[in-house]
Every structure is written in C-alpha cells, then in structure tokens.
Design a binder for these strands. Structure first.
Lengths: 253, 253
DNA sequence: CGCCGGTTTGACATACTTCAAGAGAAGTGG
DNA sequence: CCACTTCTCTTGAAGTATGTCAAACCGGCG
C-alpha cells in the first residue's frame, strides 16, 4: 500500500479502462498521477454541497453516490445515481450545482482542479475521453427524461431495477446473479423516479405478487422473471411478436 | 465567398464564440474547415432518425430543433429543444439515439464524422470544447429532470415559458419584449413537459384568466405579469443563472 | 423491552388523462 | 370572396393513477 495521497496504483485500478484516463498512455498517466489523490467517504457523507466550490475533479472508483438538489423546505430531489467511473465535479464546474452524497462507502480518485484543467487543454487523450464521458452522462440524463415524463409508476420501477441489474452486472459479480441490492431507500427511489415512497412500495410489492420478483429484505430482492420485468418496463426491445408482448398489467387491487 | 459546400465564412459565423470550434485558433479552424459543409432543413423535416446511422457531426447555427423518442404505442417524449450551438450527432455517436426534427428552418454546420473524430483525438482545443458542450447539455438535461419529476402542470408550463423568454432574449430581440413566440404546438409542448395537450391548453388559458399572460394567437402570447409567472413556476426565487434551463422543483406552492 | 426509522397497507382526495364534441384558424378550390 | 376541408385548439365530463393522510408493522439497537 502506498502513502495516503497515492494509495492506489493506476496499473491495478479497477476502472483503468473506463475512467477519464482510459486513453492515456503511460507517460500521460505519470503526469496526471502527480496531482492524484484518493479519498474515501462513508455512506451518508456529503461529498460535495450544492453551491460550494469544489477544488477537486474526481471520479468514483467504487461505491454509489446520489446527485440531488435540496430545497428550502428541506425536500430533496435526486437527479441520478453515480457509479464507478462517473465524475464528481467535472472540469470547468467551478462550483457544485448539486449535492453529491455517498449512498454506500465511496472511493474517489481525485485531481487538483486547476492543474487537471490545464492537462485537459493539452492532452487530447484526456480531453476526448472527458467528452465521451460527458456525452454518456448526457444520454443517461436524457433517457431518464423519458422515464420521468412518460412512464407509469410500475414501468418506472421496472426500468429502475433493470438499470440496477445492468450496473451491477458491469460491476463484476459481487452478488449472486438475480439478486439486486438496492443502494437507496424507498423514499429515495421515489425521489429518483418522481414518485411518492408509498407508490414505490406498492408497486414493488405488486411486482412481487405477480411473481416477477421476490423481496428478500428491504434492500435486497431476487429477480424471478427477467423477461416479465423487461416487459413491465415500458421500453420496447425490438424483436417480439405482438402476441408475446401481450401484457395484462395487474393494477394494484 | 466560397462554394456551395463552404457557404459560410467562419470569421462571420454567428456562433463562432460558442460553437464546438470556439477555442480553435486560425490554423486549427482552417483544418476543420476543409471537412465542413452547411446544410439547411425546413420546419418539420427530420434531421436524424432514431436508430439510423448519422455520417455527420454537426452544430445548429440557426433555428430550433426538437430531440424526441417515440415508443411503439405512440407515447412520445421530447428530451429537449436544440438551439444555436447545440450539437446534432456528436462525435462517437455512430447512430442516433433520438429523432431530431426541425421546428423552424434550421441551418447546420456539418463535418464528416470520421475525419472530425480524428481531429478531436489530436486537437485538445476541439476536444475540451466538445467536453464543455457535452457537460452543458448534461446539466440542461438534469435540470429538466426536476421539472418532469416533481412539478405540477401549471409549474411546468410557467417554467417552460420562462425558459423560452430567456432563450429568446439571448437570441437578440427579434420580437417585441414581453411577447413570446411558441416554436411548437400544444401537443409538442405537452410532449416536452410530459403532459396531455389538453392539460397544456387548460393551464395556458388558466394563466391567461389569472391575468398573467394574454394569448394573442396560437403561437404568440404576451406576458403581462412576469413576477407572477415566476411565482407560478415553482422555482426558488434565488438568483442563480446557469447556462441552460433553470428549474428547481417545489411541491404545492 | 421499548423506542425509532424505514416500510407496508388502507382510505380518501385530486390532478391529470382520456374521451368526446365543438370552435377557430388556415389552407384549398371553385 | 366564399364554401369546404383540415388542423389545431378549446372546453366539458368522466375515469384513473398517483398523491396525501394516517395508522400499523417490522427490524435494529439502545
């Protein structure tokens, strides 16, 4: 283990191939490694506060964080979840537009902002990867728009679960397949999907009653029928006969 | 004046300072100008179709276009409107994830995709500006999330009108102050805000009945009480001024 | 054990959608 | 210039999904 400011070696970095520095060669890596440090946050800790200056540019190496905005009346609104490789405090963002809060223990790979921005301006490998990540995040946000604007509560929840499955699969099997770990509470899922927490609870249990999943405990569930879940998500994957698509959604009785 | 494929001169380009190439020096500009062409679309024409390959990377020079996604069952969600400087078909996007449709006559500054991507990989000025634009679009989409997830119909519509006012002000006064030109139909406003067109109509007229605005004709309205409109938008009165849609949710006012 | 946050469940309220019909604009052709 | 069509918008009535309020439940943890 290296010292506190350089605890991880880029060569063994779990996000080496997908991070901001993914395209960098060894020389470039050495350059930015000089301004690199690692930070750790426990679940519940605020990584960045809305309106505050953020002196660091960083990426999530491990863990899950939530992007949210808090209102004067105390209500909190989630704009998305951040997973490994996602950026916290992008270059050019002098101050945080949102709160970033750790939902699980989070490890961050950080760079001093000013120096990093200078590197971006001169290293195309860094700049173009940054652009790719930003476009990815834009597309993710746009996909969310569709979910919020047009989907029913059940579709929203099914979509959210599929999203989690996908994210967890990428994260290389920590959990047994078919088991989903919910990183956030019902309340926060509601905030993420634009629903009341009661609605989340009802539809989650509704999916359970329909045999699509099984609620193991408040934070873990088992997917029993992936295909049915997909059909419930409202996203129409291309090839299926109209007959197979026949869904009789059981409204909560 | 140059030939048909180079009808505009970058020096007199209306988006010279904000476009993808904003940071490029004359030498770099000359390089990318070699793969540049201009295209024009009439209102209603499809610029790019969801799922299709897009061989060009381009930016809007003038006009308004809509980003949308449609499900087989007919549900449509607009992910946003595109104005001058916004990208259509970003580098790395082999195929369109959304439909892009011109809502007014649109002028596009286009680059051949493959060559442009190569330039991005070697010109940090281009790559870093691309990243900035992508981050802007991400932030715009995130701001939109708040609107779709938590706002009431009336708040959504008020927010949308304020957004148009802001955009029109930036666009350098074509119209008399206080007059809004709606670039889209009620149906499309609904699609943008996640509402039925009837709901849009009702609340628009509701705002009129409350003396906040006056409906001149279907596509134009006069704002009579800007302060009241702002109060109706559900946004915090705080004086924040990000680059795009500024939306903060609040429940029942 | 008894508190405490998160969750479930029920009953009720309502904002929005859906269905339906009619009124304006705007274009088309005589 | 006036029917006639067509499209968009408005208005009304009824249905429903989701929100709100409230109470009970459950698992941890002191």
């Amino acid at each position: 283990m290296m010292d506190a400011t350089h605890p991880t070696d880029c060569a063994s970095c779990p996000i080496r191939d997908i991070a901001l520095c993914a395209k960098c060669d060894d020389g470039e890596l050495a350059k930015i490694a000089r301004i690199k440090s690692t930070r750790r946050f426990e679940a519940g800790q605020t990584i960045a506060a809305q309106g505050e200056g953020i002196p660091l540019v960083s990426s999530i190496v491990d863990g899950v964080a939530a992007v949210s905005r808090t209102l004067e009346d105390g209500r909190t609104q989630l704009a998305g979840l951040l997973f490994a490789k996602d950026m916290v405090g992008a270059p050019g963002e002098g101050q945080a537009a949102y709160d970033i809060v750790a939902k699980t223990p989070v490890t961050l790979c950080c760079f001093e902002r000013h120096a990093f921005e200078a590197h971006v301006e001169e290293m195309p490998h860094l700049a173009s990867r940054l652009a790719e990540l930003a476009l990815d995040e834009r597309d993710a946000a746009r996909a969310y728009l569709f979910l919020l604007g047009r989907k029913t509560a059940r579709e929203k929840i099914a979509s959210f679960l599929l999203f989690l499955i996908e994210r967890q699969r990428q994260m290389a099997g920590s959990e047994a397949p078919g088991i989903i770990r919910l990183p956030v509470s019902r309340d926060e899922i509601g905030s993420l999907l634009g629903l009341a927490l009661e609605t989340v609870s009802r539809h989650l249990n509704g999916l359970g009653r329909d045999g699509i999943l099984q609620i193991l405990d408040h934070r873990r569930l088992r997917i029993l029928d992936r295909a049915a879940l997909e059909r419930s998500s409202g996203d129409a994957p291309a090839p299926m006969t109209p007959r197979e698509l026949q869904v009789i959604p059981r409204k909560s009785a």
